[in-house]
């Protein structure tokens, strides 16, 4: 609980910091509610029918043979192996970490997963179990999954994760604030968490797209998170349905692509929840390649948040190889 004592004094107005270097013209957008609203509502709209049509087209790509084997390994290396249950124990997390390090003990060609994702209080257990491996320790924080807590509580939650050794923080946005149009509030919280992390971990921002009214909101929320300094925009907590769908992921990929075109900086996307089967994962890789670009086909820029996907990837891999 050492993190609590290191908490900064949090006031109603969080000091705003500059957006990262290279973001010409965007630095001032987060100035206040009105400015954010003007910017976000000025983004090109998303046509639902067209978006879903394109997703269906992307899903028709045929990936077989060595290309599929490569895709499966790539997908494995992008998995954030997740357990987020009230019943999680240290033993369960250690077992998960063992699987994360060596997903298929019978086949050492299978790469380790990208990260293990746990609640903050178990970050320490995961860090211990993963010491000396390339596997990252991701912890959900900021009153996951609802996000219904005061900012000091959210920061304390983050502190707990960081103290445990988390290298990645998956925070949730305040959907209530978003839906009531208080964009500034959502923005401020992300900035506050980012400043609190202060470079000690990667920041993933969960938009919980299943609770947003439509694809336009998904695009706006993604941009708001990017403006506030998210390293990764993430679809869902996995606690609501629908979670990650191909159209939603497509919108996020468009956002990071457009961010790159505007700033020259590559940010990531995490598709979390609902992706359970290997072919589904491969379809997402196709979307990554064609919507954002091949440069995004790396665990640094694309992740799957999943618990059961890994097993299906390995099953499929054994069938293909």
């Amino acid at each position: 609980m050492g993190g609590i004592t290191r908490l900064p004094t949090v006031t109603a107005t969080v000091p705003r910091t500059e957006i990262r270097a290279g973001v010409a013209g965007l630095a001032d957008v987060g100035r206040d509610d009105r400015s954010l609203r003007r910017f976000l509502h000025g983004l090109p709209p998303v046509d639902e029918a067209g978006l879903e049509l394109r997703s269906a087209e992307l899903a028709r790509r045929r990936v077989a043979g060595s290309a599929e084997l490569q895709a499966l390994d790539l997908a494995v290396s992008m998995v954030d192996l997740t357990t987020l249950e009230g019943a999680d124990t240290a033993g369960r997390v250690r077992a998960l970490c063992a699987q994360a390090r060596r997903p298929d003990p019978a086949n050492l060609e299978v790469p380790p997963v990208a990260a293990v994702c746990v609640y903050p209080d178990l970050a320490g257990v995961a860090a211990e179990a993963l010491r000396g491996t390339p596997v990252q320790i991701a912890a959900v924080a900021t009153a996951f999954p609802s996000g219904r807590a005061s900012l000091p509580v959210k920061l304390a939650d983050t502190a707990l994760a960081l103290d445990g050794g988390a290298t990645e923080i998956d925070m949730v946005i305040d959907r209530g604030a978003w839906l009531s149009g208080r964009y500034g509030h959502v923005y401020d919280e992300i900035v506050a968490v980012r400043e609190f992390i202060d470079g000690r971990a990667h920041l993933k921002v969960i938009l919980e797209t299943g609770e947003l009214p439509g694809y336009d909101d998904v695009r706006r929320a993604a941009w708001l998170a990017l403006l506030a300094g998210a390293d990764v925009v993430k679809t869902s907590t996995g606690k609501t349905s629908p979670a990650a769908t191909l159209p939603v992921v497509q919108v996020l990929l468009q956002a990071v692509r457009d961010w790159y075109r505007a700033t020259g900086e590559r940010r990531g996307v995490k598709a979390a929840g609902g992706i359970r089967r290997a072919p589904d994962a491969v379809r997402h890789l196709v979307a990554v390649r064609e919507v954002a670009g091949p440069e995004w086909l790396t665990p640094a820029l694309f992740r799957f948040g999943a618990s059961s996907l890994l097993d299906d990837l390995l099953r499929r891999r054994r069938g293909v190889a």
Binding site: R61, R62, V63, G65, A67, L285, V286, R289, P294, T298
Partner: peptide
């Protein structure tokens, strides 16, 4: 990463 779909002829 350089991943492509290969040929599905």
């Amino acid at each position: 990463m350089d991943w492509d779909y290969g040929v599905a002829r």
